[in-house]
Design a protein around this nucleic acid. Structure first.
Length: 572
DNA sequence: GCCGTTTTCGGCCCGACTGTTTTCAGTCG
Protein backbone atom coordinates (compact mmCIF):
# COMPACT_ATOMS: atom_id res chain seq x y z
CA UNK A 1 0.00 0.00 0.00
CA UNK A 2 1.76 3.15 -1.15
CA UNK A 3 1.82 6.13 1.23
CA UNK A 4 0.72 9.35 -0.46
CA UNK A 5 2.05 12.84 0.06
CA UNK A 6 -1.19 13.89 1.73
CA UNK A 7 -0.78 11.29 4.46
CA UNK A 8 2.78 12.37 5.18
CA UNK A 9 1.63 16.00 5.35
CA UNK A 10 -1.26 15.07 7.65
CA UNK A 11 1.09 13.29 10.06
CA UNK A 12 3.37 16.33 10.27
CA UNK A 13 0.43 18.69 10.74
CA UNK A 14 -0.98 16.54 13.50
CA UNK A 15 2.40 16.34 15.19
CA UNK A 16 2.72 20.13 14.96
CA UNK A 17 -0.70 20.55 16.58
CA UNK A 18 0.09 18.23 19.47
CA UNK A 19 3.51 19.78 20.02
CA UNK A 20 1.85 23.18 20.10
CA UNK A 21 -0.56 22.05 22.81
CA UNK A 22 2.41 20.58 24.66
CA UNK A 23 4.09 23.99 24.51
CA UNK A 24 7.07 23.04 22.35
CA UNK A 25 9.40 25.52 20.64
CA UNK A 26 7.19 27.49 18.21
CA UNK A 27 9.86 27.45 15.52
CA UNK A 28 10.12 23.71 15.66
CA UNK A 29 6.34 23.56 15.25
CA UNK A 30 6.56 25.88 12.30
CA UNK A 31 9.20 23.64 10.73
CA UNK A 32 6.77 20.69 10.80
CA UNK A 33 3.91 22.77 9.38
CA UNK A 34 6.16 24.16 6.69
CA UNK A 35 7.32 20.68 5.74
CA UNK A 36 3.70 19.51 5.55
CA UNK A 37 2.86 22.34 3.17
CA UNK A 38 5.90 21.70 0.97
CA UNK A 39 5.10 17.99 0.70
CA UNK A 40 1.43 18.65 0.03
CA UNK A 41 2.21 20.91 -2.92
CA UNK A 42 4.76 18.63 -4.56
CA UNK A 43 3.78 17.52 -8.03
CA UNK A 44 5.56 14.21 -7.53
CA UNK A 45 4.91 11.33 -5.15
CA UNK A 46 7.48 11.58 -2.41
CA UNK A 47 7.56 7.76 -2.31
CA UNK A 48 8.75 7.77 -5.94
CA UNK A 49 11.37 10.39 -5.13
CA UNK A 50 12.75 8.13 -2.41
CA UNK A 51 12.66 5.12 -4.74
CA UNK A 52 14.63 7.13 -7.29
CA UNK A 53 17.16 8.05 -4.59
CA UNK A 54 16.48 11.77 -4.87
CA UNK A 55 17.94 13.90 -2.06
CA UNK A 56 14.96 15.09 -0.01
CA UNK A 57 17.05 17.72 1.78
CA UNK A 58 17.09 19.62 -1.52
CA UNK A 59 13.44 20.46 -0.81
CA UNK A 60 12.98 23.79 0.97
CA UNK A 61 12.41 23.39 4.69
CA UNK A 62 13.44 19.72 4.72
CA UNK A 63 16.69 18.99 6.54
CA UNK A 64 18.42 15.77 7.61
CA UNK A 65 15.97 15.06 10.40
CA UNK A 66 12.76 15.56 8.43
CA UNK A 67 14.15 13.64 5.44
CA UNK A 68 14.70 10.64 7.74
CA UNK A 69 11.23 11.00 9.25
CA UNK A 70 9.67 11.09 5.78
CA UNK A 71 11.55 7.94 4.77
CA UNK A 72 10.32 6.21 7.92
CA UNK A 73 6.72 7.14 7.19
CA UNK A 74 6.96 5.91 3.61
CA UNK A 75 8.59 2.67 4.72
CA UNK A 76 6.47 1.84 7.76
CA UNK A 77 3.39 4.01 7.51
CA UNK A 78 4.16 5.30 11.00
CA UNK A 79 5.85 8.30 12.57
CA UNK A 80 7.36 7.11 15.88
CA UNK A 81 7.65 10.61 17.34
CA UNK A 82 3.93 11.17 16.75
CA UNK A 83 3.11 7.89 18.55
CA UNK A 84 5.30 8.98 21.43
CA UNK A 85 3.69 12.41 21.74
CA UNK A 86 0.22 10.89 21.49
CA UNK A 87 0.94 8.96 24.70
CA UNK A 88 1.04 12.23 26.63
CA UNK A 89 -1.36 14.37 24.57
CA UNK A 90 -4.38 12.52 23.22
CA UNK A 91 -4.52 12.71 19.44
CA UNK A 92 -8.15 13.87 19.44
CA UNK A 93 -7.14 17.19 21.04
CA UNK A 94 -5.92 18.14 17.59
CA UNK A 95 -9.55 18.50 16.51
CA UNK A 96 -10.22 21.06 19.24
CA UNK A 97 -7.73 23.42 17.58
CA UNK A 98 -10.05 23.60 14.59
CA UNK A 99 -12.66 25.40 16.69
CA UNK A 100 -12.66 29.15 16.10
CA UNK A 101 -11.39 30.93 19.20
CA UNK A 102 -9.49 27.95 20.55
CA UNK A 103 -5.73 27.95 20.31
CA UNK A 104 -3.08 25.72 21.85
CA UNK A 105 -3.02 27.45 25.25
CA UNK A 106 -6.75 27.22 25.81
CA UNK A 107 -6.93 23.62 24.59
CA UNK A 108 -4.18 22.75 27.05
CA UNK A 109 -6.04 24.50 29.88
CA UNK A 110 -9.27 22.67 29.04
CA UNK A 111 -7.52 19.30 28.96
CA UNK A 112 -5.37 19.78 32.06
CA UNK A 113 -8.10 21.22 34.27
CA UNK A 114 -11.33 19.75 32.99
CA UNK A 115 -10.10 16.62 31.14
CA UNK A 116 -11.82 17.88 28.00
CA UNK A 117 -10.68 15.82 25.03
CA UNK A 118 -13.36 16.13 22.38
CA UNK A 119 -15.81 18.66 21.04
CA UNK A 120 -18.59 16.68 22.75
CA UNK A 121 -16.78 16.98 26.13
CA UNK A 122 -16.41 20.68 25.53
CA UNK A 123 -20.10 21.22 24.80
CA UNK A 124 -21.10 19.39 27.96
CA UNK A 125 -18.65 21.37 30.12
CA UNK A 126 -19.89 24.67 28.73
CA UNK A 127 -23.51 23.69 29.41
CA UNK A 128 -22.58 22.97 33.01
CA UNK A 129 -20.89 26.38 33.26
CA UNK A 130 -17.55 24.83 34.15
CA UNK A 131 -15.47 26.48 31.43
CA UNK A 132 -16.12 30.06 32.55
CA UNK A 133 -14.57 29.30 35.93
CA UNK A 134 -11.14 28.62 34.46
CA UNK A 135 -8.51 31.35 34.83
CA UNK A 136 -8.45 33.54 31.74
CA UNK A 137 -11.84 32.30 30.56
CA UNK A 138 -15.09 34.15 31.07
CA UNK A 139 -18.70 34.14 30.03
CA UNK A 140 -18.01 35.80 26.70
CA UNK A 141 -15.22 33.41 25.84
CA UNK A 142 -17.50 30.51 26.61
CA UNK A 143 -20.16 31.88 24.31
CA UNK A 144 -17.63 32.46 21.56
CA UNK A 145 -16.35 28.91 21.76
CA UNK A 146 -19.87 27.56 21.55
CA UNK A 147 -20.43 29.61 18.42
CA UNK A 148 -17.14 28.36 17.04
CA UNK A 149 -18.33 24.78 17.46
CA UNK A 150 -21.51 25.49 15.50
CA UNK A 151 -19.63 27.34 12.76
CA UNK A 152 -17.19 24.48 12.39
CA UNK A 153 -19.94 22.33 10.90
CA UNK A 154 -21.89 25.03 9.12
CA UNK A 155 -19.03 26.80 7.39
CA UNK A 156 -16.43 24.07 7.09
CA UNK A 157 -16.48 24.04 3.31
CA UNK A 158 -14.55 26.56 1.30
CA UNK A 159 -16.50 28.26 -1.47
CA UNK A 160 -15.84 27.73 -5.14
CA UNK A 161 -14.08 30.77 -6.57
CA UNK A 162 -16.82 31.41 -9.15
CA UNK A 163 -19.49 31.52 -6.44
CA UNK A 164 -17.75 34.37 -4.60
CA UNK A 165 -17.56 36.76 -7.57
CA UNK A 166 -21.03 38.27 -7.17
CA UNK A 167 -20.66 38.55 -3.39
CA UNK A 168 -17.39 40.43 -3.78
CA UNK A 169 -18.99 42.66 -6.36
CA UNK A 170 -21.84 43.70 -4.03
CA UNK A 171 -19.43 44.24 -1.12
CA UNK A 172 -17.25 46.53 -3.17
CA UNK A 173 -20.23 48.45 -4.51
CA UNK A 174 -21.44 48.96 -0.94
CA UNK A 175 -18.07 50.28 0.22
CA UNK A 176 -17.81 52.64 -2.74
CA UNK A 177 -21.09 54.27 -1.75
CA UNK A 178 -19.08 55.87 1.06
CA UNK A 179 -17.51 58.78 -0.78
CA UNK A 180 -14.61 59.08 1.65
CA UNK A 181 -13.38 55.65 0.50
CA UNK A 182 -10.75 56.00 -2.22
CA UNK A 183 -9.49 52.56 -3.25
CA UNK A 184 -11.19 49.21 -2.61
CA UNK A 185 -10.05 45.77 -3.62
CA UNK A 186 -10.71 42.18 -2.60
CA UNK A 187 -7.37 40.62 -1.70
CA UNK A 188 -6.71 37.21 -0.11
CA UNK A 189 -7.12 33.89 -1.89
CA UNK A 190 -9.79 35.53 -4.06
CA UNK A 191 -7.16 37.78 -5.61
CA UNK A 192 -4.78 34.86 -5.93
CA UNK A 193 -7.63 33.12 -7.80
CA UNK A 194 -7.40 30.01 -5.73
CA UNK A 195 -9.97 27.42 -6.81
CA UNK A 196 -11.74 27.69 -3.48
CA UNK A 197 -11.99 30.74 -1.23
CA UNK A 198 -12.44 30.70 2.54
CA UNK A 199 -12.79 34.22 3.91
CA UNK A 200 -13.02 37.39 1.85
CA UNK A 201 -10.36 39.99 2.61
CA UNK A 202 -11.33 43.50 1.59
CA UNK A 203 -8.81 46.30 1.61
CA UNK A 204 -9.71 49.98 1.42
CA UNK A 205 -7.99 53.34 1.71
CA UNK A 206 -9.76 56.23 3.40
CA UNK A 207 -8.91 59.24 5.51
CA UNK A 208 -10.91 58.12 8.50
CA UNK A 209 -10.86 54.37 9.02
CA UNK A 210 -13.36 54.51 11.84
CA UNK A 211 -15.97 56.08 9.56
CA UNK A 212 -15.30 53.46 6.88
CA UNK A 213 -15.78 50.64 9.37
CA UNK A 214 -19.06 52.26 10.52
CA UNK A 215 -20.25 52.27 6.91
CA UNK A 216 -19.00 48.75 6.24
CA UNK A 217 -20.96 47.17 9.09
CA UNK A 218 -24.19 48.58 7.64
CA UNK A 219 -23.87 46.20 4.65
CA UNK A 220 -27.27 44.56 4.37
CA UNK A 221 -25.99 40.99 3.93
CA UNK A 222 -24.24 40.97 7.32
CA UNK A 223 -25.56 38.42 9.83
CA UNK A 224 -23.08 38.99 12.64
CA UNK A 225 -20.37 41.49 13.53
CA UNK A 226 -17.43 39.59 14.97
CA UNK A 227 -15.07 42.48 15.63
CA UNK A 228 -14.75 46.19 14.87
CA UNK A 229 -11.87 48.53 15.51
CA UNK A 230 -10.64 51.80 13.98
CA UNK A 231 -8.69 50.08 11.18
CA UNK A 232 -10.26 46.66 10.81
CA UNK A 233 -13.47 44.74 11.21
CA UNK A 234 -14.62 41.15 10.80
CA UNK A 235 -18.19 40.15 10.00
CA UNK A 236 -20.07 37.09 8.88
CA UNK A 237 -22.55 37.32 6.02
CA UNK A 238 -25.87 35.50 5.89
CA UNK A 239 -24.31 33.15 3.35
CA UNK A 240 -21.86 32.09 6.07
CA UNK A 241 -18.84 33.69 4.46
CA UNK A 242 -16.58 35.65 6.80
CA UNK A 243 -15.40 39.04 5.56
CA UNK A 244 -12.42 40.93 6.91
CA UNK A 245 -12.11 44.62 6.14
CA UNK A 246 -8.88 46.48 6.60
CA UNK A 247 -8.55 50.24 6.18
CA UNK A 248 -5.14 51.84 5.63
CA UNK A 249 -3.84 55.25 4.49
CA UNK A 250 -3.05 55.69 0.80
CA UNK A 251 0.68 55.74 1.44
CA UNK A 252 0.38 52.17 2.70
CA UNK A 253 -1.94 50.74 0.06
CA UNK A 254 0.68 48.65 -1.76
CA UNK A 255 2.18 47.05 1.30
CA UNK A 256 -1.26 46.44 2.79
CA UNK A 257 -2.44 44.87 -0.48
CA UNK A 258 0.62 42.64 -0.50
CA UNK A 259 0.06 41.68 3.11
CA UNK A 260 -3.64 41.04 2.69
CA UNK A 261 -3.26 39.13 -0.58
CA UNK A 262 -0.87 36.59 0.92
CA UNK A 263 -0.27 33.82 0.84
CA UNK A 264 0.94 33.86 4.38
CA UNK A 265 3.92 31.79 3.27
CA UNK A 266 4.78 34.24 0.50
CA UNK A 267 4.61 37.12 2.98
CA UNK A 268 6.86 35.40 5.46
CA UNK A 269 9.39 34.70 2.71
CA UNK A 270 9.53 38.31 1.51
CA UNK A 271 9.68 39.69 5.04
CA UNK A 272 12.62 37.42 5.68
CA UNK A 273 14.44 38.86 2.67
CA UNK A 274 13.71 42.32 4.04
CA UNK A 275 15.21 41.42 7.41
CA UNK A 276 18.39 40.27 5.65
CA UNK A 277 18.57 43.71 4.05
CA UNK A 278 18.07 45.37 7.44
CA UNK A 279 14.58 46.48 6.40
CA UNK A 280 11.19 45.80 7.93
CA UNK A 281 8.07 45.08 5.91
CA UNK A 282 4.65 45.27 7.53
CA UNK A 283 1.20 46.21 6.22
CA UNK A 284 2.05 49.92 6.48
CA UNK A 285 5.15 49.95 4.34
CA UNK A 286 8.82 49.18 4.02
CA UNK A 287 10.84 50.69 6.87
CA UNK A 288 14.48 51.51 7.32
CA UNK A 289 14.69 52.09 11.05
CA UNK A 290 11.63 54.20 11.75
CA UNK A 291 11.56 55.81 8.32
CA UNK A 292 9.06 54.58 5.71
CA UNK A 293 10.84 54.20 2.39
CA UNK A 294 8.11 52.53 0.29
CA UNK A 295 4.56 51.17 0.46
CA UNK A 296 2.29 53.02 -1.92
CA UNK A 297 2.26 50.27 -4.53
CA UNK A 298 3.15 46.58 -4.51
CA UNK A 299 5.81 47.25 -7.15
CA UNK A 300 7.50 49.70 -4.75
CA UNK A 301 7.64 47.10 -2.01
CA UNK A 302 9.06 44.38 -4.25
CA UNK A 303 11.61 46.83 -5.67
CA UNK A 304 13.01 47.54 -2.21
CA UNK A 305 14.03 43.91 -1.89
CA UNK A 306 15.30 43.73 -5.48
CA UNK A 307 12.40 41.72 -6.84
CA UNK A 308 10.24 42.33 -9.89
CA UNK A 309 6.45 42.42 -9.46
CA UNK A 310 5.08 38.95 -8.78
CA UNK A 311 1.54 38.21 -10.01
CA UNK A 312 -0.91 37.35 -7.18
CA UNK A 313 -1.64 33.91 -8.69
CA UNK A 314 1.98 32.90 -8.14
CA UNK A 315 2.24 33.99 -4.51
CA UNK A 316 2.28 30.60 -2.79
CA UNK A 317 5.96 30.30 -1.92
CA UNK A 318 6.25 27.49 -4.44
CA UNK A 319 9.38 28.78 -6.10
CA UNK A 320 8.13 32.15 -7.38
CA UNK A 321 10.53 34.12 -5.19
CA UNK A 322 13.55 32.14 -6.39
CA UNK A 323 12.34 32.52 -10.00
CA UNK A 324 11.93 36.27 -9.47
CA UNK A 325 15.45 36.56 -8.08
CA UNK A 326 16.79 34.81 -11.19
CA UNK A 327 14.58 36.96 -13.44
CA UNK A 328 12.84 33.79 -14.64
CA UNK A 329 9.23 34.54 -13.77
CA UNK A 330 6.77 33.26 -16.39
CA UNK A 331 4.88 35.70 -18.61
CA UNK A 332 1.48 34.41 -17.50
CA UNK A 333 -1.22 33.70 -20.04
CA UNK A 334 -4.10 36.20 -20.26
CA UNK A 335 -7.74 35.82 -21.26
CA UNK A 336 -7.15 38.13 -24.22
CA UNK A 337 -4.73 35.67 -25.81
CA UNK A 338 -7.38 32.91 -26.08
CA UNK A 339 -8.50 32.53 -29.70
CA UNK A 340 -11.09 29.80 -29.35
CA UNK A 341 -12.72 27.12 -27.23
CA UNK A 342 -12.16 23.43 -27.95
CA UNK A 343 -14.81 21.79 -25.77
CA UNK A 344 -18.52 22.59 -25.71
CA UNK A 345 -21.90 20.91 -26.07
CA UNK A 346 -25.11 21.67 -27.97
CA UNK A 347 -28.75 20.74 -27.51
CA UNK A 348 -28.11 17.75 -29.78
CA UNK A 349 -26.85 16.02 -26.62
CA UNK A 350 -26.93 17.58 -23.14
CA UNK A 351 -26.35 21.25 -23.92
CA UNK A 352 -29.18 23.77 -24.01
CA UNK A 353 -28.31 25.89 -27.05
CA UNK A 354 -28.17 24.75 -30.65
CA UNK A 355 -25.20 24.71 -32.97
CA UNK A 356 -25.91 28.11 -34.54
CA UNK A 357 -26.42 29.83 -31.17
CA UNK A 358 -23.16 28.47 -29.76
CA UNK A 359 -21.25 29.51 -32.90
CA UNK A 360 -22.72 32.99 -32.86
CA UNK A 361 -21.89 33.45 -29.17
CA UNK A 362 -18.30 32.33 -29.72
CA UNK A 363 -17.95 34.74 -32.62
CA UNK A 364 -19.20 37.55 -30.41
CA UNK A 365 -16.50 36.71 -27.89
CA UNK A 366 -14.01 37.45 -30.66
CA UNK A 367 -13.01 33.81 -31.14
CA UNK A 368 -11.81 32.56 -34.52
CA UNK A 369 -12.66 28.93 -33.87
CA UNK A 370 -14.96 26.77 -31.75
CA UNK A 371 -14.91 22.98 -31.50
CA UNK A 372 -18.30 21.35 -31.01
CA UNK A 373 -17.82 18.30 -28.83
CA UNK A 374 -21.09 16.56 -28.11
CA UNK A 375 -21.08 13.28 -26.23
CA UNK A 376 -20.59 9.84 -27.79
CA UNK A 377 -23.07 6.94 -27.65
CA UNK A 378 -21.87 5.40 -24.37
CA UNK A 379 -23.30 8.48 -22.63
CA UNK A 380 -26.83 7.33 -23.43
CA UNK A 381 -28.49 9.53 -20.82
CA UNK A 382 -27.26 12.56 -22.79
CA UNK A 383 -28.45 11.06 -26.11
CA UNK A 384 -24.80 10.58 -27.03
CA UNK A 385 -24.01 10.31 -30.74
CA UNK A 386 -23.75 7.07 -32.63
CA UNK A 387 -22.04 6.89 -36.01
CA UNK A 388 -25.09 8.14 -37.88
CA UNK A 389 -25.69 11.10 -35.55
CA UNK A 390 -22.11 12.39 -35.65
CA UNK A 391 -22.06 12.15 -39.46
CA UNK A 392 -25.25 14.22 -39.53
CA UNK A 393 -23.70 16.85 -37.26
CA UNK A 394 -20.61 16.99 -39.50
CA UNK A 395 -22.89 17.84 -42.42
CA UNK A 396 -24.69 20.50 -40.41
CA UNK A 397 -21.37 22.08 -39.41
CA UNK A 398 -20.13 22.14 -43.00
CA UNK A 399 -23.31 23.93 -43.99
CA UNK A 400 -23.10 26.46 -41.16
CA UNK A 401 -19.39 27.12 -41.75
CA UNK A 402 -20.25 28.38 -45.23
CA UNK A 403 -22.35 31.12 -43.62
CA UNK A 404 -20.00 32.07 -40.76
CA UNK A 405 -17.95 35.19 -41.33
CA UNK A 406 -15.14 35.26 -38.77
CA UNK A 407 -15.45 31.94 -36.98
CA UNK A 408 -14.64 28.39 -38.09
CA UNK A 409 -16.54 25.60 -36.36
CA UNK A 410 -14.32 22.60 -35.78
CA UNK A 411 -15.78 19.12 -36.03
CA UNK A 412 -15.21 17.09 -32.92
CA UNK A 413 -16.76 14.87 -30.28
CA UNK A 414 -16.32 14.23 -26.57
CA UNK A 415 -15.33 10.62 -26.92
CA UNK A 416 -15.98 8.30 -24.02
CA UNK A 417 -12.98 6.23 -22.96
CA UNK A 418 -14.33 2.74 -22.24
CA UNK A 419 -13.20 0.54 -19.39
CA UNK A 420 -10.62 -1.30 -21.47
CA UNK A 421 -9.19 1.93 -22.90
CA UNK A 422 -10.84 1.62 -26.28
CA UNK A 423 -12.78 4.55 -27.73
CA UNK A 424 -16.53 4.64 -28.12
CA UNK A 425 -16.69 5.01 -31.94
CA UNK A 426 -14.65 3.37 -34.71
CA UNK A 427 -11.65 5.00 -36.39
CA UNK A 428 -13.50 5.27 -39.71
CA UNK A 429 -15.74 7.89 -38.04
CA UNK A 430 -13.00 9.59 -36.03
CA UNK A 431 -10.92 10.26 -39.11
CA UNK A 432 -13.69 12.55 -40.39
CA UNK A 433 -13.19 14.91 -37.42
CA UNK A 434 -10.74 17.79 -36.91
CA UNK A 435 -9.92 16.64 -33.39
CA UNK A 436 -11.26 14.55 -30.53
CA UNK A 437 -11.73 15.41 -26.86
CA UNK A 438 -11.57 12.18 -24.87
CA UNK A 439 -12.62 11.57 -21.29
CA UNK A 440 -13.73 9.13 -18.62
CA UNK A 441 -17.33 9.16 -17.40
CA UNK A 442 -17.66 5.71 -15.87
CA UNK A 443 -15.80 3.19 -13.73
CA UNK A 444 -14.17 5.82 -11.53
CA UNK A 445 -13.14 3.22 -8.98
CA UNK A 446 -10.70 1.08 -10.95
CA UNK A 447 -7.41 0.40 -9.16
CA UNK A 448 -4.66 2.88 -9.98
CA UNK A 449 -2.74 0.57 -12.28
CA UNK A 450 -5.83 -0.32 -14.34
CA UNK A 451 -7.07 3.28 -14.53
CA UNK A 452 -3.64 4.48 -15.67
CA UNK A 453 -3.43 1.73 -18.31
CA UNK A 454 -6.93 2.61 -19.48
CA UNK A 455 -5.93 6.21 -20.19
CA UNK A 456 -2.62 5.33 -21.82
CA UNK A 457 -4.23 2.70 -24.04
CA UNK A 458 -6.80 5.29 -25.16
CA UNK A 459 -4.00 7.68 -26.06
CA UNK A 460 -2.48 4.95 -28.26
CA UNK A 461 -5.28 5.65 -30.74
CA UNK A 462 -3.89 8.11 -33.29
CA UNK A 463 -7.20 10.00 -33.38
CA UNK A 464 -6.94 10.86 -29.68
CA UNK A 465 -6.22 14.60 -29.42
CA UNK A 466 -7.13 16.08 -26.01
CA UNK A 467 -7.56 14.36 -22.65
CA UNK A 468 -10.47 16.24 -21.08
CA UNK A 469 -10.82 16.82 -17.31
CA UNK A 470 -7.87 14.49 -16.82
CA UNK A 471 -8.32 13.60 -13.14
CA UNK A 472 -12.13 13.65 -12.91
CA UNK A 473 -12.24 15.40 -9.55
CA UNK A 474 -15.16 17.65 -8.63
CA UNK A 475 -14.37 20.38 -6.14
CA UNK A 476 -16.03 19.73 -2.74
CA UNK A 477 -17.83 16.71 -4.21
CA UNK A 478 -15.66 13.97 -5.66
CA UNK A 479 -12.03 12.93 -5.38
CA UNK A 480 -9.92 12.39 -8.47
CA UNK A 481 -9.90 8.81 -9.73
CA UNK A 482 -6.74 6.89 -8.96
CA UNK A 483 -4.14 7.34 -11.68
CA UNK A 484 -0.38 7.68 -11.79
CA UNK A 485 -0.40 11.21 -13.13
CA UNK A 486 3.29 11.19 -14.00
CA UNK A 487 2.92 8.09 -16.17
CA UNK A 488 -0.15 9.55 -17.87
CA UNK A 489 1.70 12.78 -18.59
CA UNK A 490 4.75 10.93 -19.88
CA UNK A 491 2.50 8.92 -22.21
CA UNK A 492 0.78 12.10 -23.42
CA UNK A 493 4.14 13.66 -24.14
CA UNK A 494 5.42 10.67 -26.11
CA UNK A 495 2.24 10.49 -28.20
CA UNK A 496 1.75 14.21 -28.77
CA UNK A 497 -1.54 14.32 -26.85
CA UNK A 498 -2.85 17.50 -25.27
CA UNK A 499 -4.08 17.82 -21.68
CA UNK A 500 -7.08 19.96 -20.83
CA UNK A 501 -7.55 22.61 -18.19
CA UNK A 502 -11.31 22.32 -17.86
CA UNK A 503 -12.75 25.70 -16.86
CA UNK A 504 -16.02 24.51 -15.27
CA UNK A 505 -16.02 26.08 -11.76
CA UNK A 506 -16.46 22.71 -10.05
CA UNK A 507 -13.80 20.97 -12.15
CA UNK A 508 -10.80 23.28 -12.78
CA UNK A 509 -9.08 20.10 -13.81
CA UNK A 510 -6.03 19.94 -14.23
CA UNK A 511 -5.36 21.77 -11.00
CA UNK A 512 -2.61 24.35 -10.52
CA UNK A 513 0.09 21.94 -9.36
CA UNK A 514 -0.51 19.52 -12.24
CA UNK A 515 -0.51 22.43 -14.74
CA UNK A 516 2.94 23.37 -13.55
CA UNK A 517 4.07 19.77 -13.69
CA UNK A 518 2.81 19.37 -17.28
CA UNK A 519 4.55 22.58 -18.30
CA UNK A 520 7.83 21.41 -16.76
CA UNK A 521 7.50 18.15 -18.69
CA UNK A 522 7.00 20.07 -21.94
CA UNK A 523 3.38 19.04 -22.50
CA UNK A 524 0.92 21.34 -24.27
CA UNK A 525 -2.42 22.19 -22.73
CA UNK A 526 -5.81 23.47 -23.89
CA UNK A 527 -8.02 25.66 -21.72
CA UNK A 528 -11.65 24.76 -22.49
CA UNK A 529 -14.99 25.68 -20.96
CA UNK A 530 -16.93 22.44 -21.54
CA UNK A 531 -19.84 24.88 -21.94
CA UNK A 532 -23.35 23.43 -21.93
CA UNK A 533 -24.95 26.80 -22.69
CA UNK A 534 -24.11 30.14 -24.28
CA UNK A 535 -23.42 31.83 -20.96
CA UNK A 536 -21.02 29.10 -19.87
CA UNK A 537 -18.62 30.12 -22.62
CA UNK A 538 -17.69 32.88 -20.14
CA UNK A 539 -16.20 30.27 -17.81
CA UNK A 540 -13.01 30.63 -19.86
CA UNK A 541 -11.70 33.15 -17.33
CA UNK A 542 -11.75 30.56 -14.55
CA UNK A 543 -9.68 28.21 -16.66
CA UNK A 544 -7.21 31.00 -17.36
CA UNK A 545 -6.99 31.78 -13.62
CA UNK A 546 -6.13 28.17 -12.87
CA UNK A 547 -3.60 28.10 -15.72
CA UNK A 548 -1.95 31.24 -14.35
CA UNK A 549 -1.72 29.64 -10.92
CA UNK A 550 0.01 26.77 -12.71
CA UNK A 551 2.62 29.12 -14.21
CA UNK A 552 1.32 28.61 -17.78
CA UNK A 553 2.36 31.00 -20.52
CA UNK A 554 0.74 31.71 -23.86
CA UNK A 555 3.12 29.30 -25.58
CA UNK A 556 2.01 26.41 -23.33
CA UNK A 557 -1.63 26.70 -24.38
CA UNK A 558 -2.71 25.54 -27.83
CA UNK A 559 -5.92 27.54 -28.13
CA UNK A 560 -3.89 30.74 -28.25
CA UNK A 561 -2.63 29.64 -31.69
CA UNK A 562 -4.04 30.81 -35.02
CA UNK A 563 -6.24 28.18 -36.68
CA UNK A 564 -3.69 26.93 -39.22
CA UNK A 565 -0.99 26.30 -36.62
CA UNK A 566 -3.55 24.67 -34.34
CA UNK A 567 -4.70 22.25 -37.05
CA UNK A 568 -1.12 21.11 -37.61
CA UNK A 569 -0.92 20.15 -33.93
CA UNK A 570 -4.00 17.94 -34.26
CA UNK A 571 -2.21 15.68 -36.78
CA UNK A 572 -0.27 12.98 -34.98
C1' DG B 1 13.68 21.77 13.19
C1' DC B 2 15.85 24.68 9.45
C1' DC B 3 19.31 27.63 7.73
C1' DG B 4 23.62 30.67 6.19
C1' DT B 5 26.08 37.80 1.44
C1' DT B 6 25.58 38.44 10.07
C1' DT B 7 27.29 30.83 7.97
C1' DT B 8 27.58 25.61 12.28
C1' DC B 9 25.03 29.08 16.52
C1' DG B 10 21.42 31.81 17.31
C1' DG B 11 18.32 33.62 15.06
C1' DC B 12 13.53 32.47 13.00
C1' DC B 13 7.52 38.09 10.01
C1' DC B 14 4.56 41.34 12.05
C1' DG B 15 0.51 43.74 13.86
C1' DA B 16 -4.83 44.30 15.36
C1' DC B 17 -8.61 43.12 18.27
C1' DT B 18 -10.91 40.82 22.28
C1' DG B 19 -11.54 39.58 26.84
C1' DT B 20 -9.94 39.38 31.12
C1' DT B 21 -7.10 41.75 33.17
C1' DT B 22 -5.30 46.29 35.50
C1' DT B 23 -0.77 45.67 31.83
C1' DC B 24 -1.29 41.70 28.79
C1' DA B 25 -2.00 36.94 26.96
C1' DG B 26 -4.32 34.56 23.45
C1' DT B 27 -5.94 34.20 18.92
C1' DC B 28 -6.13 35.39 14.27
C1' DG B 29 -4.70 36.68 9.71
Amino acid sequence: MPIHNLEVAQKFNKLANLLEIQGANPFRIRAYRNAARVIDSLSKDIADMIAEKEDLTELPGIGEDLAEKIKTIIKTGELPLLKQVEKRIPSVLSELLEVEGLGPMRVKMLYKNLKIKSIEDLKTAIKKGRVRKLAGFGEKTEKKILQGITHRYEYAKRNRLADTFSIVDSLIRHLKRDKTVKQVECAGSFRRRKETVGDLDILATAEDGKKTVEHFIKFEEIAEIISRGPTRSTVRLRSGIQVDLRVVPETSYGSALLYFTGSKEHNIAIRKIAVQKKLKINEYGVFKGKKQIAGKTEEDVYRQINLPYIAPELREDRGEIQAAQKKQLPQLITLESIRGDLHCHTSATDGNADLAAMAKAAEELGYTYLAITDHSQRMSMTHGFDKKAILAQIKAIDKLNEKMKKLVILKSIEMDILEDGSLDLPDEVLKELDLTVCSIHSKFNLPQKKQTERLIRAMDNIYFTILAHPTGRLINQREAYAINIEQVMQAAKERGCILEVNAQPDRLDLNDIYCKMAKEMGIKLAINTDAHSVSQLDYMKFGVFQARRGWLEKSDVINTLPLQALKKLFKR
